[in-house]
């Protein structure tokens, strides 16, 4: 099944919103794939980071339902290498924020093993809460 991507007012508004929230201009993306090749988390992702940039450009909101935006660990490997000076981690954060601000969390405390929790340095909990919950 080939999916149809509609270009219309809604798609353009979505792209604009992500651009504004991230401070990036996704239309500058060259689609060269350096981000993907640099990404340590790529094996866990369902779409590649460059595909994420593309879907934002097209204004396809399904990008928010991907695992990729949550898997991104903000390690800035892509940021350091992007030939166009773009920061895909900011785009991923913007997409996460759109979800989180609708009170849709990616991580739930009740799933955690309390014994395991004791082992972590505090920064793990702070970081994960900041990134994965609203």
């Amino acid at each position: 099944m080939i999916k149809k991507i509609l270009i219309n007012d809604a798609s353009e508004a979505f792209c604009k919103k992500v651009n504004e929230l991230s401070g990036e201009t996704v239309s500058r993306c060259d689609q060269c794939g350096t981000c993907t090749g640099s990404c340590p988390m790529i094996i866990e992702m369902d779409i590649t980071p460059s595909q994420m940039m593309r879907l934002v450009l097209l204004g396809d909101e399904s990008v928010m339902e991907t695992k990729t935006i949550w898997i991104c660990a903000s390690c800035y490997s892509c940021t350091a290498r992007c030939p166009r000076g773009l920061d895909a981690s900011k785009v991923a954060e913007a997409l996460r924020q759109i979800k989180l601000r609708q009170a849709i969390d990616y991580m739930h405390m009740e799933d955690m093993d309390p014994e395991e929790l004791k082992k972590f340095p505090q920064m793990v909990l702070v970081a994960a809460y900041r990134k994965l919950t609203g």
């Binding site: 993907t36 779409i47 590649t48 460059s50």
Partner: peptide, 11 residues
Amino acid sequence: MRVEDTLSRQM
């Protein structure tokens, strides 16, 4: 070499 085939979207 690590590189994305951006046409097939595979790593």
